[in-house]
Amino acid sequence: MYITELKNLIEPLICQDNNELYYEIRQLPETKAGGIDLLVMCSEEVFGYVVGKAGLIANSLRTLLNIRGQVDHNKVNIKFEVI
């Protein structure tokens, strides 16, 4: 559920006419805290579009998914990584 919503938020940021999307989203195993951990892995060319300058877009994505997570009483953590 959260992966689909995150994918819907990321695709417009990096979608270009003739380029493929070079990213993957995985859900990490649950921890003791009980939150949902997501890992966004993307290529170097796309990383800047997904994270944004000074991490502004990444923080916005975290905020939006945490708002969505409050409906289900979940805390959503998102980590970004370059492949």
Rank of each mutant, 00 (worst) to 15 (best):
G69L: 00
Y2W: 03
N59L: 13
I25L: 04
T31K: 13
L64Y: 11
A58Q: 03
A54R: 13
K53F: 03
P29D: 06
V46C: 11
T31S: 10
F80C: 04
K32M: 09
F47H: 04
L64M: 14
C42Q: 11
V71Q: 10
I3P: 06
K79I: 03
V50D: 03
V46N: 09
N8Y: 11
L13E: 05
V76F: 08
N66R: 04
H73I: 00
Q16W: 07
N66L: 00
D37P: 02
L21M: 08
D72R: 14
V46Q: 10
Q27V: 08
T63P: 08
Q27T: 06
N66D: 07
L28S: 02
D37S: 06
K53I: 00
F47P: 00
I3F: 06
E30I: 06
L9W: 14
I67Q: 13
E5T: 14
A54E: 14
P12N: 02
I67A: 13
L9D: 01
I78H: 04
L65H: 06
K53G: 00
R62E: 01
I83V: 12
E44S: 15
E45N: 13
Q70I: 00
R68Q: 12
I14A: 07
N18F: 13
N8D: 09
Q16Y: 07
E45M: 13
N8I: 11
L21Q: 06
K7A: 07
V82P: 09
I78S: 00
N19V: 08
V71T: 10
G35I: 00
E20Q: 12
N66I: 00
N59S: 11
P12C: 05
L13Y: 08
S43L: 15
L13F: 10
N59I: 10
E45R: 10
K79A: 14
N77R: 04
I67C: 12
I10D: 01
G34K: 05
Y23S: 02
K79M: 12
N77S: 05
N18L: 12
T63N: 12
C15I: 07
I25K: 04
R26A: 07
A33M: 03
L6R: 10
I57E: 15
S60R: 09
T4L: 10
K32C: 06
L28Y: 05
F47N: 01
I3R: 08
E11K: 05
G55E: 02
N66A: 02
E81K: 07
G55H: 05
D72H: 13
R62I: 00
H73S: 13
L39F: 08
P29R: 07
I57D: 15
N19A: 11
N18E: 12
R26M: 11
Y23V: 01
E45W: 14
V76E: 03
N8T: 11
N19D: 09
L9K: 13
V50E: 04
G48S: 06
S60M: 08
L65I: 02
T63R: 11
L64S: 12
L6N: 01
R68D: 10
K32I: 07
S43K: 15
K79F: 15
E24T: 06
